[in-house]
């Protein structure tokens, strides 16, 4: 099993519903976020292109945060989801430094490092992550890449896609349809 997220940048309108849903679902501290929307503008007027991306932890196949964690607090669970065990984390910041996506933060009250979990607590029960389930344009998909009949597998077979910073060698598992 390999959980991945596929996000259709052509359908995303940048409403930030995914961000708010995550903050509510995961009780994210005020001012912090586990996911965020990036607007990427390229080109020169009059030939300008804009891309909207809902970004989060990429749950990398080769996660540098797991490699550099000195205590094993950062680890992968079923389906390749990268999670942090709060009471094993010392808050050294090595994982934050190692993440090319800046997807992690130190919890302002608790002190341990926190990040997107692909809503593992929901996924375990067969539900979709909160961000995916609230998306009003249905531009986000979540599923098992090893199942050839899943939405994510079919979309990646049919559409052009990219991942963020592939040159970092992290093998990110959030795919953006372009």
């Amino acid at each position: 099993m390999r959980y991945v997220m596929v996000i259709d940048t052509k359908k995303c309108v940048g409403c930030s519903d995914c961000v708010v849903a995550c903050q509510v679902e995961n009780d994210v501290p005020l001012g912090y976020c586990r996911d965020w929307v990036t607007e990427s503008v390229s080109g020169k007027f009059p030939k300008v292109e804009m891309e909207l991306r809902s970004e989060r932890c990429n749950h990398c196949e080769n996660p540098p945060c797991v490699r550099t964690c000195p205590t094993g607090a950062s680890h992968t669970v079923d389906g390749g989801i990268v999670v942090v065990t709060g009471n094993k984390c010392i808050g050294c910041g090595a994982c934050i430094e190692s993440c090319p996506y800046d997807a992690r933060y130190q919890h302002p009250e608790e002190g341990y490092v926190d990040k997107c979990t692909f809503c593992f607590h929901r996924v375990e029960k067969g539900m979709k992550p909160a961000c995916v389930s609230v998306c009003p344009t249905r531009c986000m998909y979540f599923g098992d890449l090893h199942d050839p009949n899943s939405d994510v597998s079919r979309l990646l077979a049919e559409r052009k896609y990219k991942v963020l910073a592939p040159e970092a060698g992290t093998k990110p598992q959030v795919y953006y349809l372009i």
Partner: peptide, 26 residues
């Protein structure tokens, strides 16, 4: 002093992580 979860610093000595330089250092 720089750790944000100071009370758990002993966790460094419950793991030997060959790939983590910080574990080597500890």
């Amino acid at each position: 002093f720089d750790l944000s979860h100071k009370m758990f610093v002993w966790q460094l000595y419950l793991a030997i992580r060959i790939e983590s330089p910080m574990s080597w250092g500890a």
